[in-house]
Computed example of a mutant assay.
Amino acid sequence: MEIAPESALLVIDVQKGFDDASFWGPRNNPAAEANIAALMDAWQQSGRPVVLVRHTSRVPGSVLGAGEPGHAFKDFVAQRQGGEALLVTKTVNSSFYGTPDLGAWLTAQGIGQLVVTGIQTNMCVETTARMAGNLGYDVLLPLDATHTFDLEGPDGLSLTADQLATATAVNLQGGGFARVVTTAQLLAASEAAQLTA
């Protein structure tokens, strides 16, 4: 796996509101935050671009609403939010429908590879990765740098967070939208790229 010198790391919706278990229910992958932090550190140390995406919910009572404490980034993200990071604010699932325009910024920067991380695996992360794949980006998705929550569907159908994450991995790689990888693989590839630079 090769990490391009201009490969952008997308950190999607890593906000305090997702810590509210009473609102979201059971989650998976407790290592997600540590893995996202490790990737942010590696990208910043290598000089590669980092994009922070924040969801501003328009749903009344949402913990991700503007002005709510849960709208803020989790502390480990805020601590790593350098002035060089692009901040995109969105109100829908795809990070490509936000302000400023992510696609326009990526084009202006000559970026063709995206590493997509964040919350929720099967919602904003998967939607962004699908759209990026459709737009022609080389998309890498470290599944262990994402997490999601159990979800109920129609007629009493429900899936656990782990089942949803597995479905996302199959959808994205099986559908040709992205390559599903691990954080360790990305960190090793990033380090190898720096040694040969």
Rank of each mutant, 00 (worst) to 15 (best):
H55P: 06
L141Y: 03
F73W: 13
V125Y: 14
F149C: 02
N134W: 13
M123C: 15
V139G: 06
N93T: 12
L114G: 10
E152C: 05
E84G: 03
L140I: 08
A145D: 11
N93Q: 14
R48E: 05
T127S: 14
T89G: 08
V59H: 12
L52D: 03
L114D: 13
P69C: 02
T128G: 10
A72S: 14
Q81W: 01
D41W: 00
N93R: 14
V51R: 01
Y97S: 13
A78F: 05
H55K: 01
V77Q: 05
A72F: 11
G70K: 05
G110V: 07
E84H: 08
T148D: 09
L86E: 08
L106S: 09
S94A: 11
A104G: 02
L87H: 03
G136I: 04
E152Q: 14
L141I: 13
S94R: 10
G47I: 05
A132H: 11
P100V: 15
E68S: 11
L87V: 05
I111T: 15
D75P: 00
V88C: 07
L140D: 07
D41A: 03
F76W: 11
P60Q: 00
Q109I: 06
G98K: 07
L141K: 04
A42G: 04
N122S: 14
K90N: 12
P69Y: 09
V59R: 13
R80N: 10
Q120W: 15
A132E: 11
V139A: 08
V50A: 00
V116P: 06
